[in-house]
Amino acid sequence: MRRFTLPVVGLLGVAALALTGCQSPTAEAAPADPDAPITIATIPVGEDPTAENPIEVFAELLEKATGRDVEITDVPDYLSVVEAIRADHVDIGIMSGFPSALAVNTGEVDALVAFQGDGKPVSTCVVLDDSPIQTVEDLEGKTVAFADQASSSGYFMPVYMLHEAGLEQGEDYEAIFAGGHEGSFAALEQGQVDAACTAVMLTQLGAPMFPFADGEWRAVGESPAMDIQGAVLGRQSLDAETRKVIQDGIAEVFSPENAERLGAYGSFAAAPQTVDPESTDFESFAEIAAVAGVELKDLQ
């Protein structure tokens, strides 16, 4: 396993593709090279120095499953992952539902494998226990903290939940971006916001992922479930043999026995997988993204 960081100059060149929409041509698939490494673009995942890094665990398991070397390229944000794939700098990237859907919607990135949702509500909004807020509708005129604009559970789904309750961002409530779920919780704890919208899963995990003890907080509302919780995206120039090797490797890596080691990717290990999902499978995400006012270029 080898690890690289895509230089800033390289990122600028790759990101420039985003400005041209869907105009770049699809590269022709090169003949298969059984000795070629599988290359992955990834944003930072797993910052706990006492735990295994999820992307490194994934790379190790993928090497074992495929018999090929794996090279990891670190990039700063989701947009850079997508553009690295579109520009044929890397073979694959792994992302949650919404970034995956926006990437597939460009028509220039393929979804190799989709991880299906579990049918359960994804997000909720958290308030302190002594808050007068009892329902989602009570958030009208309030200040709400979100993780960041690329977060499925910390932005897209709760914004859609508020929309369904008749509340529009910037009109009926003020939104702030805290840079992550932890920042949202801190803002709520310090009284800077009236509510923090986050993943239901985090509220169930408790400390240290969720800092409030029983009796200190309440959940207000539940978002819909997500049909697809994440996907492995691939460059369209992948040859058929490498594509199948990766897809078979993904099926082996994301199995229940690997869930604990995969850390942040662990939820994918328990999810049913769809190989070569249709672009129509991601259509519901486009509607929710439109409500949130987010496009691919915003995923930084």
Rank of each mutant, 00 (worst) to 15 (best):
S267R: 10
T20Y: 11
P277H: 06
G180T: 05
F115H: 00
E283T: 15
A231M: 00
E257A: 13
E287V: 13
G119F: 10
K297W: 11
A175P: 09
H181E: 12
E28T: 14
A219C: 02
G215P: 01
G154R: 07
S255Q: 10
R218E: 04
S96K: 13
G166H: 00
G263S: 03
T280A: 15
L19F: 13
P37A: 11
T203G: 01
L162F: 00
V14D: 10
E278R: 11
L17Y: 06
P34F: 05
S123T: 07
S131L: 06
G179Q: 03
Q190E: 13
E174D: 10
A114I: 03
P277E: 02
F58W: 03
E252C: 05
R68T: 04
D129F: 12
Q273L: 10
V122T: 15
I94R: 11
P34H: 06
D239F: 08
D194V: 04
K297M: 10
K120P: 02
D88V: 07
I55N: 07
P25R: 13
L79C: 08
L11W: 09
I72A: 12
A15P: 02
N105A: 15
T39Y: 10
I250M: 11
P272R: 08
P99Q: 13
V291R: 00
A87G: 12
G170A: 04
V122H: 00
A51V: 08
E56L: 13
Q190N: 14
A36D: 08
E47S: 15
G10M: 10
E222V: 02
P256A: 01
A36R: 09
I228S: 09
I72Y: 08
L128W: 09
S80F: 05
A290T: 12
I85V: 15
L262W: 00
A264E: 14
S80R: 10
E241L: 12
H89M: 08
Q229H: 09
S151H: 05
E216L: 01
A259F: 00
D91E: 06
Q273H: 09
E164H: 01
A251R: 11
P224L: 09
G119T: 07
T73Y: 15
C197V: 05
E168I: 08
P34T: 07
N105Y: 12
P256Y: 01
E28R: 15
T26M: 10
S153W: 03
A240D: 12
I40Q: 03
K64R: 15
S255C: 00
E287A: 15
K244W: 08
A111H: 05
G230M: 04
E295S: 14
Y160C: 01
